[in-house]
């Protein structure tokens, strides 16, 4: 029998800090459960939680009003602190608004692109690298993203049924270049 041992303690910073840490997945299991249980009882934390989720939706183009759900979800979390299992606990470098920064970074994708010799067999040989920053992988911004998105959408529609937009964001792409 093995039991999880938690050595980290719940950050004692203000609501901005620990709600941000929770959303960043920086809290370990027990800390996250405590954080979830605190949210419904602390007005400032509940407000931050709702705001951060709305910011995320806006960043991703999902501008629908989710306040009603978030209110019900907070109630659910109060009774069900394990509804959302926490991410792997990382060593906390807790800072306010980290989560919103992470969400923004998600939109500002960095494409790492290698140019290489083409191959009929599909075995691409990477010979050099350059980094291309794109503020948005939507049409008109990055030609590689434009090409990949319909495939991702079709695959994810088959696999999950539930996604309204491609959930996957290709972060690293090795590019073999146009066929010659």
């Amino acid at each position: 029998m093995v039991s999880m041992k938690h050595t980290q303690t719940m950050p004692s910073q203000d609501a901005d800090a620990w709600v941000s840490a929770l959303l960043n997945g920086e809290l370990d299991d027990s800390e996250a459960k405590r954080a979830f249980s605190r949210i419904p009882g602390e007005a400032e934390a509940a407000t931050r939680w709702a705001e951060y989720n709305l910011v995320s939706d806006a960043l991703h183009g999902d501008a629908a009003d989710t306040r009603a759900f978030m209110a019900r979800f907070r109630d659910t979390l109060e009774a069900e602190p394990t509804v959302l299992a926490p991410m792997v606990a990382r060593k906390a470098q807790t800072a306010p608004y980290l989560w919103t920064a992470a969400a923004a970074a998600m939109a500002a994708i960095t494409w790492t692109v290698w140019t290489a010799a083409p191959s009929d067999t599909g075995s691409d040989r990477m010979v050099s690298a350059q980094t291309v920053a794109a503020n948005d992988p939507r049409p008109g911004v990055d030609p590689v993203a434009n090409q990949l998105e319909p495939y991702l959408a079709a695959h994810q529609d088959y696999a999950y049924a539930v996604v309204s937009v491609p959930e996957m964001v290709i972060e690293k792409v090795s590019l073999a270049g146009p066929n010659q």
């Binding site: 191959s119 599909g122 691409d124 964001v169 290709i170 073999a176």
Partner: peptide, 20 residues
């Protein structure tokens, strides 16, 4: 067309294109 290999942020989804 381009030939690429890709991975999502957390590595959950992986992609490969090639020419045959």
């Amino acid at each position: 067309n381009v030939t690429v290999r890709g991975a999502s942020q957390r590595g959950m989804t992986n992609l490969r294109t090639l020419r045959v």
